Simulated assay, not measured.
Amino acid sequence: MRLTVLGGCGAWPTAVQACSGYLVEYDGFRLLLDPGYATLPRLLHRHTADAVDAVLVSHGHPDHCADLNPLLRARGLSDDPPPPLPVYAPHGALDAVLALDGPRMLAAAYRLHEFTPGDRFAVGPFTVATRLLPHFVPNAGIRLGTPHGVLAYTGDTGPSPDVPLLAEGADLFLSEATHLHRVPAADAPYLLTARLAARYARQAGSARLLLTHLWPGTDPAAARETAAELFTGPVDVAVPGLVAEPASRSTS
């Protein structure tokens, strides 16, 4: 399994960093996980729009799904449109982004598969197990399994005992870490810190921690150093172009 970071900035993109977006590849299958703001140009540096085999979305905030619209435009309005793109998302999460164009304009460009966080299903060669994690809107923590490894991804979440369960024994734990040490009180139930992400990674026995969704302007080195105080395994920050190919030690 290979994960390529397209972006990992929280809330809005910066001049150098797109929002959440990750390309996960296994056995020739390309799964786009969370096409947030400004991720499509990063994808197109590597692949054509029709090279994506499926899209999986954790929740409906636009910094996790807004670039689904230009991706569908690039596919559906091309001279030789590819087959409909399978798109998986929690119920209602994509209503707003899919309404950006008229109902008939892109209808043939995708097939929507809605799920309830907690569901299990398959996407190509991946087994997908989801968990409802606390956020401002319904958010699915996602665990992708293959015979050669496990990737756990929080989407956006606040503190929950379900987070280390999601990441248990994962070869790679991709965790939101919006703040370094403390979340402002109003947002505390819905977001994590780098410190708490590291604590969960340690509790889960994850092999590698990748911090993402940092607040714009956060120093990646500071986030990495904060997490490394509690988690002794490899710690990285999701920046565009980073490729993670964790050695397998798990099953789904």
Rank of each mutant, 00 (worst) to 15 (best):
R2T: 15
R2A: 12
T4R: 14
V5P: 01
G7R: 02
G8H: 07
T14F: 06
V16D: 10
C19M: 04
G21K: 05
Y22I: 05
L23N: 04
Y26L: 01
F29W: 10
Y37H: 12
L40P: 01
L43S: 12
A51W: 11
D53E: 09
H64C: 02
H64N: 06
C65H: 00
C65N: 06
A66E: 09
D67C: 09
L68P: 03
N69S: 14
L72W: 13
R73Q: 14
A74N: 10
R75K: 08
P81N: 07
P82C: 07
P86C: 09
V87F: 01
A89L: 05
G92V: 06
L94I: 12
L98S: 10
D101F: 08
M105K: 07
L106G: 00
A108G: 13
A109R: 00
Y110E: 03
Y110W: 09
F115Q: 00
P117T: 14
G118K: 09
G118V: 13
D119T: 03
T127H: 10
L133R: 00
P134A: 11
P134C: 10
V137F: 08
P138G: 11
A140H: 04
V150C: 12
G158S: 03
L165R: 14
A167Q: 05
E168L: 12
G169I: 14
L172M: 08
H181A: 10
V183K: 03
D187S: 15
P189W: 12
L191I: 12
L192Q: 15
T193F: 00
T193C: 03
R195H: 12
L196M: 13
A197H: 07
R199H: 15
R199K: 11
R208H: 15
L214W: 05
W215S: 08
A223W: 00
T232C: 05
D236M: 06
V239E: 09
L242C: 08
A247E: 14
S250W: 00
